[in-house]
Computed example of a mutant assay.
Amino acid sequence: MESKQANVIGLISDIHGNLAALEAVLADMPDVDAVVNAGDVVGYGPWPAECVKRIRHPRSYSIMGNHDARLFWDEITDAGDAYAAEVLADEQKAWIKSLPDQRLLFDDRLKVVHGHPVDRFQYTYQPEFDETLLDAEDMLVLGHTHRQGSARVDGDRLVVNPGSVGQPRDKDPRASYAVINLEEMTISLERTSYDIDRVAEQIAETPIKERNATRLYQGR
């Protein structure tokens, strides 16, 4: 349990080393009491170290995603993950390794997982958002699918995926995030544009596959 109080909270997920998108989201986001990150700071994108540095903040709460976990495999097969493992400082890797699989925050009112409360890397899409996903918390936040959505279940409780900051996959190339109000139990799903050309140019300077740049223009 983590009981630090917060009312208005920014929700983000799946940053994937895309600093341009992260900066755009944080600039577009209204004043919030805290930011909750549902995992995958690294992978695919060209700025893993910069994104780790940017997201580490006393009022930011992160969990480990599947690409974060891959940094510690004996063999890393994805070029984006391998690049992250190469350029991250040792203390940044140690921070990622220390991240929990899930967190209960704000007097246990909000749970954050990456993919699913039982199987942390299981894809959970909006049609599956129902009361069976929740325990006693008022709100469940998850990511992993890179698709933004929310559902009000079991009365006034919420399941929400803020979408992907760094690699949306719902055919909308704009970076995704959400803002919630825990007192009023309201949610606003948000999108903001960012400089995709900047990301593509930076990817071209790395071993990361070009496809990870071209797909950004298509939101897929």
Rank of each mutant, 00 (worst) to 15 (best):
M1G: 10
E2C: 00
A6D: 06
A6I: 10
I9V: 15
L11C: 04
S13N: 09
I15D: 06
I15A: 07
H16A: 05
A21P: 01
L22S: 06
A24G: 02
A24R: 03
A24I: 07
A24W: 02
V25D: 06
M29K: 04
P30G: 03
P30H: 07
D31T: 12
D31A: 14
D31I: 00
D33S: 07
D33L: 12
A38F: 00
D40E: 07
G45C: 10
G45L: 12
P46M: 07
P46C: 09
W47C: 04
E50M: 03
C51T: 09
C51P: 03
V52S: 04
V52Y: 12
R54Y: 02
I55V: 15
R56H: 13
R56D: 01
H57Y: 13
S60K: 01
G65K: 03
N66D: 14
H67N: 13
H67Q: 05
D68V: 05
R70T: 11
D74H: 09
E75D: 13
T77V: 15
Y83T: 10
Y83E: 07
V87T: 13
D90Q: 14
D90E: 15
Q92K: 05
A94G: 01
W95T: 06
I96K: 00
S98H: 08
P100E: 15
Q102C: 11
F106A: 10
F106H: 07
D108L: 01
L110G: 03
K111R: 15
H114S: 05
G115W: 15
H116Y: 08
P117L: 03
P117V: 12
T124L: 05
Y125M: 02
P127S: 08
P127T: 10
F129N: 10
L133N: 11
D135M: 07
E137L: 08
D138W: 04
D138T: 10
L140D: 10
V141T: 06
V141S: 07
V141K: 02
G143M: 07
G143Y: 13
T145Q: 08
T145C: 06
Q148E: 13
Q148F: 11
G149M: 12
S150C: 08
S150D: 12
A151F: 00
G155A: 05
G155W: 07
D156A: 10
V159Q: 08
N161G: 02
S164Q: 08
S164E: 06
V165F: 07
G166I: 10
R169C: 05
K171F: 15
P173S: 04
R174Q: 15
Y177P: 03
V179R: 02
I180L: 13
N181C: 13
L182Q: 12
M185R: 14
M185N: 06
I187L: 14
I187R: 00
L189T: 08
R191H: 13
T192Y: 01
D195Q: 05
I196K: 04
V199M: 03
Q202W: 06
E205I: 00
P207H: 08
K209L: 12
E210H: 07
E210T: 14
T214M: 02
R215D: 09
G219C: 07
G219Y: 08
G219H: 04
G219R: 01
